[in-house]
């Protein structure tokens, strides 16, 4: 199960992701550098959170042009697994690998807190082993996380099983009170049509270490990693 974690200049969740995968989930992890032209035969490529290139223009807008992204697109087009978390999700949207876009939170502020997620997709790799009637406590930390797409796109996302997660309350109820950033339909993560490219704003790597008192992220990774084992 070879996982590659990309470091862009300004990535700041790369170490957390590597720690979660290698120390907690016992996976083989290689570090991929933004200037690399090779993904070293990784089966899963992860774009971690952070502020790639400072994100002064628009989140993810510059990172999509970095050399490694050519390889990531190539990997994705060949059906390889790609997961983008937070800034990684923004980059995947900018790169056109995922539909929609991420706007400034509707309160125009950065928000960091625990949120609850309900898995929406039945078949996407990151969801397939989850319980669709349970809520998972996964934290968010972003300023631009309001998922937006045209009405038609949103409709097709639901029709094609492309919505991965929706923000909900602890009981799993999806309502506006629990929508932290104004995302359409409380959408917290989506996949492409083939479901091999996935992006989400919440940080599952922040919810795997038992010493931190929250391991709700473990089933998400297990769901994703089991698939690689098959």
């Amino acid at each position: 199960m070879k996982c590659g974690v990309v470091t862009f200049p300004g990535s700041n969740c790369n170490h957390d992701m590597i720690y979660a995968l290698s120390k907690i989930l016992n996976q083989k992890v290689v570090e991929l550098w933004h200037k690399d032209h090779d993904t070293q035969n990784c089966e899963l490529i992860i774009l971690p959170g952070g502020f790639s290139y400072g994100d002064y223009l628009r989140s993810g807008a510059i990172a999509r042009f970095s050399p490694i992204m050519k390889e990531v697109v190539h990997h994705a087009n060949n059906g390889g697994l790609v997961l983008g978390i937070c800034n990684g999700f923004q980059i995947l949207c900018e790169a056109g690998l995922l539909p929609g876009t991420l706007l400034h939170n509707n309160n125009q502020k950065f928000i960091c807190k625990n949120t609850f997620l309900k898995p929406a997709s039945l078949k996407a790799p990151i969801c397939q082993n989850l319980h669709s009637n349970e809520s998972y406590k996964i934290p968010i930390a972003h300023g631009e996380g309001r998922y937006f797409a045209s009405e038609n796109v949103i409709k097709s996302l639901f029709n094609n099983d492309q919505v991965l997660f929706q923000y909900c309350d602890i009981q799993g109820n999806i309502n506006q009170d629990e929508n932290p950033n104004g995302s359409l339909n409380n959408i917290a993560g989506v996949s492409n049509k083939n479901q091999n490219v996935m992006g989400m704003m919440p940080h599952p790597e922040r919810a795997v270490d038992p010493l931190l008192g929250n391991t709700d992220g473990v089933p998400l990774f297990n769901s994703l990693l089991n698939l690689i084992a098959v």
């Binding site: 700041n12 170490h15 959170g49 950065f110 960091c112 922040r206 270490d209 008192g213």
Partner: peptide, 13 residues
């Protein structure tokens, strides 16, 4: 408004 969890070391969250 502050990221209190980056670094995955905050035991107090």
């Amino acid at each position: 408004q502050y990221d209190s969890m980056v670094g995955t070391n905050n035991v107090s969250t």
